[in-house]
Write a protein that binds this DNA or RNA. Structure first.
Length: 230
DNA sequence: AAAGCCGGCAACCGCCCATCC
DNA sequence: TGGATGGGCGGTTGCCGGCTT
């Protein structure tokens, strides 16, 4: 049914890459560039699926990769981006130079998820686990709350080209105060880091150096519109 | 020392989307 | 316009090494 396989499975190697295979792949790409992944294995003399070559190159062999532990800043940024984008690992990786989507995905599943749970935070909704409104994502999708609808409306208005099917969950706030910025809470703009926005409707908008710009929205490092939609 | 368990991570799978013809 | 193709992505699997019993 459907499409043909991406390669001839019967004559391809699987599993861990050997040093020799790595060398062949790197040498080929250095000389010819990335080009067509499907034809690359044959051209490079590799008994590998083209997709496997692409993955190996992108995740481990690319010269611009940053290896080693994630920093606290990277941790924070991943959490913030995940609360905004959900499991869009490639988009998240696009904001972390030298990190790959696969690396971030693994790191999330093995470290950050556990860390959030231990802090009493639902890693999917980014809301306190004990909160009655901290429903599961499927519950929220089936029966979106007022705040979910409000957030989608705001994002649609501010970023019409952003995929609204993403799961977007800013830090939990009382719904009405969240919306209006009253009672000492953040308005939508400030809660997502867009402080000093012309649309800011709360008293925090003019506070400078508040440290709540981990996404880089205020500084312009991150802009919804500039998220790389590869 | 050996067996079992568990966590981390590299790699694969299958689907989706954009592009080409 | 619609099918074929290739690239890209998220989810999942399975291996391996370290730890515990």
């Amino acid at each position: 049914m459907g499409r043909s396989p991406c390669c001839e499975k019967a004559h391809t190697n699987k599993g861990a890459w050997t040093k020799e295979e790595d060398d062949r792949l790197v040498a080929h790409i250095r000389y010819h560039g990335e080009g067509c992944w499907r034809s690359l294995p044959k051209a490079a003399g590799l008994l590998r699926c083209g997709k496997s070559c692409r993955l190996r190159w992108i995740n481990y062999l690319r010269p611009d990769l940053k290896r080693g532990n994630f920093t606290q800043e990277e941790d924070d940024l991943i959490i913030k981006l995940h609360s905004l984008l959900g499991n869009k690992w490639s988009l998240i990786a696009g904001r972390l130079p030298g990190r790959t989507d696969n690396e971030i995905k693994n790191y999330w599943n093995t470290h950050i998820r556990r860390k959030l749970v231990s802090q009493g935070i639902d890693p999917t909704s980014h809301r306190p686990i004990t909160e009655p409104s901290a429903a599961t994502s499927s519950q929220r999708e089936a029966n979106p709350s007022k705040i979910d609808k409000f957030i989608k409306e705001q994002v649609r208005e501010k970023c019409p080209d952003l995929n609204l099917d993403l799961r977007i969950s800013p830090p939990y706030q009382n719904q009405e105060s969240f919306k209006t910025g009253t009672n000492g809470t953040f308005c939508f703009d400030c809660s997502t880091g867009i402080q000093n926005s012309k649309d800011c409707s709360c008293k925090y908008g003019n506070i400078t150096n508040s440290g709540y710009d981990s996404l880089g929205l205020k500084s312009g490092v991150l802009d919804y519109r500039r998220l790389e939609m590869k």
